[in-house]
């Protein structure tokens, strides 16, 4: 009866983005300039503008944590004042505007591994088989990294609280929590070797090592 009452006269869907702006982002120790639409989110700038597709787009409205990146104020004094740990704190890139992220030093999943290879969190996730579909994993590992940077020996409730903004719909979290404890040096993986998945029936291809896809 009231359907269509007061329907707005603007076309929201397919509104063209006409205004491009050049934003300067500080990502994984490098300064990069990228042209994006003025309303682009940080997530869109990372994935579409810079090709850093390790950061995932999940719910796109700030609930699921798949788009988590680490951020600290670029200004070192401000960073100290806010008590930021070395790589910063986890934030959600899907609800951060790219233009508003220019004053932040960002770490994405691509920047987690160093010259020595995988970060201890990445190695622990691989060793514990702490993933199934893997979609939540980049955000999960960054939240875990931020936790261990500020609290190197967290209790299980502290780990659960720190990861409570990252939703995983596959694993049930048990192995994820285990991986964080392994990365913290608090325990060994419950399996000595990475869990390898069986190939699907009728599929005869090379198996992919967990470690190769955990970056």
């Amino acid at each position: 009866m009231n359907r269509g009452a007061g329907r707005p006269n603007h076309q929201r869907v397919s509104a063209p983005s006409q205004t491009q702006v050049l934003v300067t982002l500080h990502i994984n120790g490098e300064t990069q300039s990228v042209a994006v639409s003025s309303q682009a989110t940080l997530l869109e700038a990372l994935r579409d503008g810079l090709g850093l597709t390790g950061t995932k787009q999940g719910c796109d409205k700030g609930d699921c944590g798949a788009c988590t990146v680490l951020a600290r104020p670029l200004d070192e004094n401000a960073a100290r004042a806010s008590g930021s740990s070395s790589r910063g704190e986890p934030i959600l890139s899907c609800i951060t505007l790219a233009q508003d992220a220019q004053g932040l030093a960002l770490t994405t999943i691509e920047g987690l591994a160093g010259a020595q290879g995988l970060d201890s969190i990445q190695r622990a996730f691989a060793d514990c088989g702490a993933l199934q579909c893997g979609f939540c994993q980049p955000g999960m590992m960054l939240s875990a990294r931020a936790l261990l940077d500020s609290n190197p020996q967290p209790s299980l409730p502290q780990i659960q609280a720190a990861l409570s903004g990252n939703l995983c719909r596959c694993t049930g979290y048990t192995k994820i929590y285990e991986a964080v404890q392994v990365a913290a040096g608090m325990r060994m993986p419950s399996h000595a070797r990475p869990v390898r998945s069986e190939p699907a029936p009728g599929v005869d291809g090379p198996r992919v090592e967990v470690k190769e896809i955990a970056t």
């Binding site: 929201r12 509104a15 205004t19 639409s37 003025s38 309303q39 796109d60 505007l97 233009q99 508003d100």
Partner: peptide, 11 residues
């Protein structure tokens, strides 16, 4: 995917 409307950002 949810897109933002056109926006100018003032800082």
């Amino acid at each position: 995917m949810l897109t933002l409307p056109m926006l100018a950002v003032h800082q």
